[in-house]
Structure formats: structure tokens, C-alpha cells
């Protein structure tokens, strides 16, 4: 039983490797990517042969991918496939985990971000993050949004700050709901409002990229729809990468989709293509719900 399973796994790995060679993953055109409903977009983030280790355990195997600018890229795959781990490489959040190690090449606008000498504070100002569970600080709504601009010294006057707070809340579609209680504590908001607050908080620092790690997994369907709408609007100005468990969500909000399994990138391409005519059987099995 175990042996059969192991053989299966080895075979699968070989298939994946072969596939990588077949589809010329390593020599992808690195200047532009074609997305179905948009003009070709320049590459914002380029990853080549990325490996991530947690201590002895390897969580990501040799992943290469290009992330287009001002579009939504979805990472899908079964639990524990490494998609969140890979996402956290883009703003170096893996640094906060004891014993983690990343090698390979990751470039943001052509500049390496893996280098240990890079200033993570500056990187994280450019690459914001929204987490799985809404995590507003136990402060007022206003203070939550003002937190980022304050620590990065983006504002000179109270008026500037007021303006940033209002603009960020408006972009997150939350302003009208909370304008009368900006100084109430943020933990009193509903789950969906909290998550949009966290998005507004990320936007307030004027990032170029927003990473979203299963942003809707703790929300009800209505709040989820609201956040998805917001993601679609944000696409105009931001490069968004979203990790999701929900296939429908990936299909609804993303222009490109990458499928991960067991720490490998199985397949990636325009969302439409992945969902209608995937090249790898494993992707199709996952999308149609045969495993995962």
C-alpha cells in the first residue's frame, strides 16, 4: 500500500518535471504575459527555481512563475500544497518563521528580493499583505489605517493623514459604512468589514503589490462577494496575488491561475484556459473535485 503510494508520487513528480520542460517553463517570455481580457501586461514579479525549506523539510520545490502587473493571479491547490508558503516569499514573511530558508531567484521590477541585505521594511511597504483571518489591531478604525502611513513617515500633517484614511477606506468600499464611527474600536466591526479594513490598511501604504492569503475563508458568502468585488476593482491599480481554496473564487476574480500540489507548481496559465482545458490531468482532477 505504502509502496504503491510512493511509486505514484515518484511518477507524478516525473510527470511534473517533464511537463516543466515540455512547456518551457524556464524560458517563458519574461517581458510580457498574455492575459485573456487585457492587453499584454509587463511582468511585475519574476520567480525562478524557488525552493523553500522549513528546517529539514522542503515546502516548495523548484517553482518558476511570472506574475503580471495590474492583474489578479490566483494560487490554487489542496491544503498543505505550499501555495501560502510561496506567497509569503514575495514580501519575505517567511523570515518571521524560525528555521525557514528560501533559495532561487525572485525579482520585483527586476530587482532581487531574496538577498538578505534587502531592507524588508521597504519591501513590505511595496508589497502589502492581507491575511486569512481578519486581524485588525485592537485600536480605532482610524488608527488601524493610520498605522502604516505613520510608521513609514508618509504624512506631515493631520490633514494629510485624514485624507489618506478616507481615501483608503473609500477604495476598500468601507468609508460610507464607518464614516460616523472612525474612532470606535475596529474589533467591533463584522468579519467582512474587518477584512475590508485590513485591505484598506494595506492600501494606505500605497503598495504596488497586494498579497492575499485566503482572504475570504473566514467570511460568509455575502461578505465574500463584497470582498471579491473589491478585488476586481483594485486590479486597476495594483498587482494582486490571491491564494484560495475556492475554485469558483479563483475563476471569478483572477486572470491567471497557478495550480500547486505537494510543493510543486503543476500548471499555470490564463484562468480561462486552466479551468476549461487544463494540460495536466492532475489539474483537471482537482478542478472537477476528484481529489483535494
Amino acid at each position: 500500500m505504502m509502496n504503491a503510494l510512493r511509486e505514484d508520487l515518484t511518477q507524478m513528480n516525473m510527470v511534473v518535471r517533464q511537463l516543466a520542460v515540455d512547456t518551457d517553463l524556464y524560458t517563458l517570455p519574461s517581458t510580457t504575459i498574455r492575459t485573456p481580457d487585457l492587453e499584454p501586461q509587463p511582468v511585475k514579479i519574476k520567480a525562478r527555481n524557488v525552493n523553500v525549506f522549513y528546517g529539514e523539510k522542503q515546502a516548495i520545490h523548484d517553482v518558476s512563475i511570472d506574475i503580471p502587473e495590474k492583474a489578479v493571479t490566483a494560487f490554487i491547490g489542496p491544503s498543505g500544497c505550499g501555495k501560502s508558503t510561496f506567497l509569503r516569499c514575495f514580501n519575505r514573511m517567511n523570515d518571521t518563521i524560525e528555521g525557514s530558508r528560501v533559495d532561487g531567484l525572485i525579482e520585483l521590477d527586476g530587482r532581487s528580493i531574496i538577498d538578505r541585505s534587502l531592507d524588508v521594511v521597504e519591501l513590505r511597504a511595496r508589497v502589502g499583505m492581507v491575511f486569512q483571518k481578519p486581524n485588525p489591531f485592537p485600536k480605532s478604525i482610524y488608527e488601524n489605517i493610520a498605522y502604516g502611513p505613520r510608521i513609514h513617515g508618509l504624512v506631515r500633517s493631520k490633514a494629510d493623514l485624514d485624507e489618506i484614511v478616507e481615501r483608503s477606506l473609500r477604495k476598500a468600499g468601507l468609508f460610507d459604512e464607518v464614516k460616523d464611527r472612525l474612532h470606535d474600536t475596529a474589533t467591533g466591526l463584522s468579519g467582512g468589514q474587518q477584512q475590508r479594513l485590513c485591505i484598506a490598511r494595506a492600501i494606505a501604504v500605497s503598495p504596488e503589490v497586494i498579497l492575499m492569503d485566503e482572504p475570504c475563508s473566514a467570511l460568509d458568502p455575502i461578505a465574500t462577494a463584497r470582498v471579491e468585488e473589491l478585488i476586481d476593482e483594485l486590479r486597476e491599480n495594483y498587482t494582486i496575488i490571491i491564494v484560495t481554496h475556492s475554485m469558483q473564487q479563483a475563476a471569478r476574480v483572477s486572470q491567471r491561475t497557478a495550480m500547486f500540489h505537494l510543493g510543486n507548481l503543476v500548471e499555470e496559465g490564463p484562468t480561462e484556459k486552466i479551468f476549461t482545458s487544463p494540460e495536466v490531468k492532475r489539474t483537471q482532477d482537482y478542478i472537477t473535485g476528484r481529489f483535494g
Binding site: 514573511m93 521594511v121 502589502g128 491575511f131 486581524n135 485588525p136 489591531f137 498605522y147 494595506a202
Partner: peptide, 15 residues
């Protein structure tokens, strides 16, 4: 204090 709060702050670029 939940780890999520710490991650949230670090993720915004706080030291």
C-alpha cells in the same frame, strides 16, 4: 497576543 496581530504589523512594513 495573537500571532496574527504581529504578522499584520510586520506585513505592513513595521520593524
Amino acid at each position: 497576543v495573537p500571532r496574527a496581530l504581529r504578522d499584520g504589523s510586520l506585513g505592513l512594513g513595521a520593524t
